[in-house]
Nucleic acid binder design. Structure first.
Length: 343
DNA sequence: AAGCGAATCAACCGCGTACCA
DNA sequence: CTGGTACGCGGTTGATTCGCT
């Protein structure tokens, strides 16, 4: 009847993730691909990973999914938001409301959590400041989320419908890859045709976080995991601390920053177009058990979703291309026009 | 150098929806 | 159609870091 029962909450670990756990999760996803999160905590014990990591993830599926999507997933851009991103978020928020997942779909390198945090910590204040300065009337012509008018709500609905339509037509014409790059409307419509695209795209970019994680692991292999229960405490004291937990940026960051997008490309041998001219001291794939080029995370995920339908390189190009900045500009302009209609 | 409040952000929680038998 | 479960999302929390006094 239905699906098998969810992970029982007894013995489920909470709190910050340790590098060990990260590696287990990455290894698992690299082998099986994302999704089917429920099986992650139980199946990870069977992964052929370094003996020191040979234990099950004591995390609930939810936590695994969250960790992957918000932190470990390749292609995530961290650090300061650019002005352009900021503008996009502001306009999209005005357009879509607090639907962070939808907004995040326009910013493939940012997670919804990131955007949400950024909105709550930075942009909200910024807009408030702006609003008080103009006495309730926003200079840019958009209002805050708190004052979503009925018209705005209707507008949102219309936008959704329009996007859904476009997504559908995109999906139906997926066998025409060129449609991805030609239409200007694509700028607005692509995110909703994205389920497959976004996955392919995110793997197209770097994943320096994982890279650093694994790199450090190679430098400082952890002690055997008999003391797994203490790992959180002990690991946060060692060099791993700088690589994953809490995303803290330390002095080591500089030294490690060499492992950037292209570094990771070589690391996972993913971006074949770039791998030629890249040579790094970074740990190579075949040094990491299970992280072989043949079954890299990226391939695992990109293949079933898109590889058969749209040439991956095309999407990569689209996403990595500098032209995408122009696409974002277009989107902003479009949103602005929409916003003008709104208010 | 120490204390304290503010800011930041990873992770958790709960709810709604989708999916499966 | 129904009941049960997984998944995904948005809101919230709390630990950590930062900056000021």
């Amino acid at each position: 009847m239905g699906r098998p029962p969810c992970c029982d909450k007894i013995g489920v670990k909470k709190g910050p993730w340790t590098p060990e756990e990260d590696i287990i999760l990455v290894s698992y996803i690299q082998e099986h691909g994302p999704g089917n999160w429920r099986s992650v905590p139980t199946n990870t014990g069977a992964i052929n990973i370094p003996t020191s990591f040979l234990y099950c993830l004591l995390r609930c599926s939810k936590s695994c999914r969250l960790r992957w999507t918000n932190y470990l997933r390749p292609g995530i851009k961290r650090g300061n938001f650019t002005e352009q991103e900021e503008k996009m978020i502001i306009h999209l928020q005005a357009l879509l409301g607090n639907r962070w997942a939808a907004i995040a779909s326009y910013l493939p390198q940012r997670t919804d959590n990131d955007i949400k945090n950024y909105w709550n910590t930075h942009l909200k204040k910024k807009l408030k400041k702006l609003q008080t300065g103009v006495d309730g009337q926003n200079q840019d012509g958009f209002s805050s989320s708190q004052s979503v008018s009925k018209g705005q709500w209707e507008r949102r609905l219309q936008t959704d419908i329009r996007m859904a339509k476009q997504a559908l037509s995109e999906a139906l014409s997926l066998d025409k890859p060129n449609s991805l790059t030609d239409s200007k409307d694509l700028n607005l419509s692509h995110p909703y045709s994205r389920p497959s695209q976004s996955q392919a795209s995110t793997y197209a970019s770097s994943a320096e976080n994982i890279s650093r994680l694994l790199q450090n692991w190679m430098k400082n292999p952890p002690k055997p995991a008999a003391h797994q229960t203490n790992s959180a405490e002990t690991m946060t004291q060692n060099s791993f601390n700088n690589t994953t937990t809490a995303g803290s940026i330390s002095s080591e960051e500089g030294a490690l920053s060499a492992t950037t997008a292209e570094g990771f490309d070589s690391f996972f041998s993913f971006n074949s177009s770039n791998s030629d001219n890249v040579s790094h001291e970074s740990v190579s794939v075949d040094q990491i058990p299970n992280l072989t080029p043949e079954n890299s995370v990226f391939q695992d995920e990109s293949k079933p979703n898109l590889g058969d339908q749209v040439p991956l390189t095309l999407i990569e190009k689209w996403l990595l291309d500098d032209g995408s900045a122009q696409a974002h500009e277009d989107l902003i302009n479009l949103s602005l026009e929409d916003g003008a209609e709104l208010f």
